[in-house]
């Protein structure tokens, strides 16, 4: 079939839709993990954020936060980053284990890495169904530092060509307290083009 002309605006729509699809799945996975108690989930906000504002996402570039970083390789590649503040991380660890493990000790870190894994994997599953691509996530990495330093590093690692980044804001309310997090998807330029083409062709069949 002939190649459809694809506008920048349309690409942005696809990016947002990539976000919506994944956010639903990722949040469902997280609430399943927390199924010992009632979990209320806010509808995830999906937004395209200017690159220069990314380091301030967590309420200030200098704020100390926890970042979980996962690289995904296949025919296409992109990067997922899950960011939470210390309070939310503490609540999450307590909700999942039923115990107050300190977030920065082995058990706490391990729980957070696993959450990063599950959230990212469920996101990838959704995208994989739609595009018929196989995604291979690498093991997650966890880091604690200034939000600006973490996000700046991620942007540099991905050699980000875009001036806008896809951001999903997720929030849960559990019996143990509120959990707020940011989930960032940073595809590289070719990835976006490939996925747009697959989705457009899929929709036309």
């Amino acid at each position: 079939m002939p190649e459809l002309p694809i506008s920048e605006e349309f690409k942005l729509d696809v990016l947002k839709e990539m976000g919506n699809i994944g956010a639903g799945n990722a949040t469902t996975a997280l609430s399943t993990l927390l199924n010992y108690e009632r979990v209320n989930m806010h509808v995830p906000e999906v937004d395209l954020c200017p690159l220069v504002d990314i380091p301030d996402l967590m309420g200030g570039a200098e704020k100390s936060v926890i970042g979980i970083y996962i690289r995904v390789f296949s025919e296409v590649s992109f990067y997922a980053v899950f960011l939470i503040d210390f309070e939310s991380a503490q609540t999450l660890v307590a909700s999942l284990t039923g115990k107050k493990y300190p977030v920065m000790e082995e058990m706490g870190r391990s729980v957070l890495l696993e959450v990063g894994n599950i959230v990212t994997a469920s996101y990838l599953n959704a995208l994989s169904h739609l595009t018929n691509l196989t995604f291979l996530p690498e093991p997650p990495l966890l880091v604690v530092d200034m939000a600006g330093a973490i996000l700046g590093t991620v942007l540099a690692e991905t050699n980000v060509a875009e001036d806008y980044i896809l951001v999903l804001k997720t929030a849960f309310v559990t019996a143990a307290g509120d959990i707020e997090g940011n989930f960032l998807i940073i595809p590289d330029q070719n990835t976006l083009d490939i996925i747009v083409r697959l989705l457009v062709n899929g929709a036309c069949q």
């Binding site: 220069v52 380091p55 570039a61 200098e62 600006g148 330093a149 996000l151 700046g152 590093t153 690692e157």
Partner: peptide, 20 residues
């Protein structure tokens, strides 16, 4: 991030959160 600024005589220039 990905920005710069110049200033003369007094005040302060600050950049927060340099990672890589």
């Amino acid at each position: 991030i990905a920005d710069y600024a110049v200033k003369k005589e007094e005040g302060m220039l600050i950049t927060v959160g340099l990672g890589s």
